[in-house]
Design a protein around this nucleic acid. Structure first.
Lengths: 261, 261
DNA sequence: CCGCTTCAATAGTGTTATCAATAGGGCGGT
DNA sequence: ACCGCCCTATTGATAACACTATTGAAGCGG
């Protein structure tokens, strides 16, 4: 599912090892690499190593200075919105923490985005959104989780795009990553909850009807549900999937896999 | 004030020309550069040109492929959260549009961040925040705009940091950019409005008192005021392009420079 | 004994030359 | 008209070298 960054070029392959390692905190902060060390470790030319460092530098993961070498910066200075860095963190031990942060961001942004969409979307766009929601609900009820995920992502992305705010739209990739990550790690019930589907329909029809406040409230309900599932359900983490007492999908107590993003 | 990105290295100097040009839409989308073209145009070696391209590629401004060259991607695919790209856009003709987007983002994020800070901050952190606010207000009343700006930035940054959310904290640089950009372009009144100062005090004391909802509401009042000033007052823009029907900066109707975000 | 200056070792920075690999477009065949 | 092959433009990668900034320590003087 999650397409890893082009392993076609060599410097990207170096990045694919170095980036996650740094993002996971295996080196840091103030750990120092030397270019020659990277050259030897990865068996690549100096040029390639330098290109990789340039990219890491542009994400503010490292600084490169003469005589000093390539120094890892403290986490607080990283460009945490860089999609690549987000993916690296989602792939590593910081996954749960990263998911929490991202959901907090979603909770903040998506409701206002839905409100803005309700104000700005054109007639065709509203119709298309409603149609999208319908297909999503149908797919969900059919139990086609993969298809549902795809449409769910499309739904949220479309709303962010319709908000008319570049920055909101720029988060659509992040949202996709979160949603995909959730199903990928079995945090989803086998079939989306009817309540969640219902809320999505409310969002769609509120935007269709030009009701910003309703759209905002409905979207807030959706994202808050997810946040609660993640915060309350507790860090069922450790490794990759549900932790101690991984609840049987059938018996969903309070905090079981519940949301449908 | 706005520290330009290290012009120490050569590839950064290339970036400093190429990046803003692309961000401004001077080449766009599907425009194709050739590496040799860049080498000739900037008088640098192939290595340096490639490093610059690598960075642009990591921001998703371009894709580089054999035989094809370096192709500019459509704006919708850019990493709009990249701090460097934000600065480039703020420096160019898209400045007003960019400011609007960023303010929308602030309006979405800062209130929840304030709420979270009210829940999570430690006793010392609360005290420090209150103190910070006091100094800010004093500086503002004294009419020291530059000092006020600095403390205002520090105030908002601190709250984002105290939210306990990496992503929120990651926006502090962006917020700083917006606030700095505002005074830099004379969108600020000569002395901060008392109402704005009062709201800041409310935020600080609500966080200090552990009242998330109050903190959220007060912060919302602050950012909404700014948003209204920007949307309503229209771009009293010192830059190159006001939109069609750009209002005369002298005649500040409802929504002249008013806020103190 | 402390502090300033000087110097040299040590990285990254930048250049050039050269070869390999890829992919787009044209050419020819069917 | 369509398909597939080949040609070549352009990026990808390597190597070897000269340049430069930084820093830490030696040396000098107060």
């Amino acid at each position: 599912m999650s397409r890893e960054s082009d392993h076609r070029t060599l410097h990207n392959r170096v990045l694919a090892e170095l980036g996650p390692a740094i993002a996971a905190g295996r080196y840091g902060p103030d750990h120092v690499f030397t270019l020659d060390g990277l050259v030897r470790e990865f068996g690549v030319s100096r040029t390639v190593a330098r290109e990789a460092v340039r990219v890491l530098e542009s994400m503010r993961l490292v600084v490169s200075r003469p005589r000093t070498g390539v120094r890892v910066r403290p986490r607080s200075e990283w460009s945490v919105f860089d999609p690549q860095l987000i993916r690296w963190r989602l792939a590593g031990p910081g996954r749960l923490e990263q998911l929490r942060s991202l959901n907090g961001l979603r909770a903040a942004v998506e409701p206002p985005a839905a409100a803005a969409a309700a104000r700005l979307a054109s007639a065709e766009e509203r119709a298309a959104l409603v149609d999208l929601e319908r297909r999503m609900a149908a797919t969900g009820r059919r139990g086609d989780l993969e298809g549902f995920l795809e449409l769910d992502i499309a739904f949220h992305r479309r709303i962010l795009e319709l908000s008319g705010n570049d920055m909101f739209a720029g988060l659509s990739g992040v949202v996709a990553e979160v949603l995909a990550g959730r199903t990928e790690h079995s945090l989803m019930p086998p079939t989306p909850r009817p309540e969640a589907l219902c809320l999505h329909r409310h969002v769609a029809s509120a935007i269709d009807g030009g009701l910003p406040q309703v759209a905002e409230a409905a979207m807030r309900a959706i994202v808050d549900e997810v946040v609660e599932a993640l915060e309350g359900g507790g860090g069922a983490d450790g490794g990759r999937d549900l932790g101690p007492g991984g609840t049987d999908p059938g018996a969903q107590g309070p905090g079981g896999p519940t949301a449908a993003g």
